[in-house]
Simulated scan of single mutants.
Amino acid sequence: MTNPIETRLAELGLTLPDAPAPAANYVPFVQVGGLVHISGQVSANESGLICGKLGADLSVEDGALAAKHCALSLLAQARAACGGDLGRLVRLVKLTGFVNSTAEFTDQPKVINGASDFFVEVLGDAGRHARSAVSAASLPFGVAVEIEGIFEVR
């Protein structure tokens, strides 16, 4: 039986990627009680890493799309943390978004909205969350966006 999250993803024409493997000496997620803390997911799509600096080579729209791809990877990690059963996902609790941007760029919240909007669209009220959106002078591999998340699971 398909759960509502998988149904909604299908309605939107979206497919979750496989949960990305860690790129260094860390684990992709840690569960403490009913909370799953997911390590930062970098912006990548089926073609590879989404790189660039907001305010220099990328528009706010490009950044928001990169953030949406981070959100897809976060949800894929949440699925892995739930043993493949997204029906165990209760809600998204918090996102922390890092935007590779110039010193003059101030639209980090608009960029991270790409992830926030995705979660509300897919999870409904369970996708409403606390959030931080901050600038970074650079990010690993030169990616545009990295986002970490905390999910409640049963």
Rank of each mutant, 00 (worst) to 15 (best):
M1A: 14
T2I: 13
E6S: 14
R8V: 05
L9W: 01
L12V: 01
G13R: 05
G13I: 04
L16N: 05
P17M: 10
D18M: 10
A19V: 07
A21Q: 13
A21N: 06
N25H: 13
Y26N: 10
Y26V: 01
F29A: 13
V32P: 00
G34I: 00
V36E: 05
H37L: 14
G40D: 03
E46G: 08
S47L: 12
G48W: 09
L49N: 03
L49A: 13
I50Q: 07
C51E: 12
G52Q: 09
K53I: 14
D57T: 15
S59E: 08
V60A: 11
V60E: 11
V60R: 07
V60H: 02
G63Y: 06
A64R: 08
A64Q: 04
K68W: 00
K68A: 11
C70W: 04
L72K: 03
L75A: 10
A78N: 11
A78Q: 07
A78I: 02
R79E: 09
R79F: 02
A80P: 00
A80T: 00
A81R: 05
C82N: 09
G84F: 08
G84C: 12
R88V: 02
R88E: 07
L89A: 12
L89K: 02
R91Y: 07
L92A: 07
V93D: 09
K94P: 00
S101N: 14
T102L: 00
E104T: 11
E104K: 10
F105A: 05
T106W: 03
Q108C: 13
P109R: 09
P109W: 08
K110W: 01
K110L: 13
V111D: 07
I112L: 14
G114S: 10
A115M: 06
D117A: 12
F119V: 03
F119H: 08
V122E: 03
V122A: 02
R128G: 00
R131V: 03
A133M: 06
A133S: 15
V134T: 12
S135A: 15
A136R: 14
A137E: 12
L139G: 04
F141Y: 15
F141T: 11
A144H: 07
E146M: 14
I147D: 03
I147Y: 07
G149F: 04
I150E: 14
E152L: 06
